[in-house]
Amino acid sequence: MSADAATTVIEFRDLSYRVGETQVIAGLNLKITRGETFVLLGRSGSGKTTTLKLINRLVAPTAGEVRVNGASNADVDVTRLRRGIGYVIQEVGLFPHFTVERNIGLVPKIERWKEDRIRARVRELLQLVGLAPEFASRYPHELSGGQRQRVGVARALAADPEILLMDEPFGALDPLTRDELQGQFLALQRRLNKTVVFVTHDLREALRLGSRIALMEAGKLVTVLAPREFVKSSDPCAAAYVRAFGDGLDSVANRSAS
């Protein structure tokens, strides 16, 4: 399947973003296609999180545009835009005064779904992210870090958005939990086939989860490669990343690309 034949869901056109004198993103052109897991990889300050926030317009560009499903995201109602895009962040940001059920059911509720439909959806989502139904009545402070992030993912999926934005969702978890959630993410993605944009600085995670990896450095897109190409890339920036993460990357990349 070539990228050209597939449908473009998100497109960056000559996009730049600056804050005062600082050029955060410079001349970004990018197409993200339906059903892929597109990873934005880069070090802190490379502009990957900003790129993500440009999609749901938490950040507005200073030049150029982002098109979502063919329309510039500046032309559509920003609330509508965001309700159609799931958003997961590292800190999760669960509402501490709401139960798990109300957290997950929030977007459906403000979209005025019926109560029993919301309840059924919450149960379905809890099962989807691997949590027992009893969790519905718990509060966020009663959950572990991994459980909280599962709820965060369930909440993002609540209104069944086509696009999912994930900003280092597993970055704050211990290695075992992270591995578990990555595995579950892969299984989930095989089932749901969302268009996922995933930000990480962890090359291993990028190789394991991504169908394509965009490497960013100092606000610029360096290269976009499939995981298997990435580990063999002669690009100095990509090669530096591969060196820093050491041996055994080949097997990670090969497993995910199948």
């Binding site: 159609g84 800190e91 940001g93 669960l94 509402f95 929030l106 909440r155």
Partner: peptide, 18 residues
């Protein structure tokens, strides 16, 4: 109020009033 909570809410499409 935790900024992460606000960002998550905003990202989910809650209006400023909500």
């Amino acid at each position: 109020v935790d900024p992460a909570v606000m960002e998550a809410g905003r990202g989910m499409g809650m209006t400023e009033w909500q």
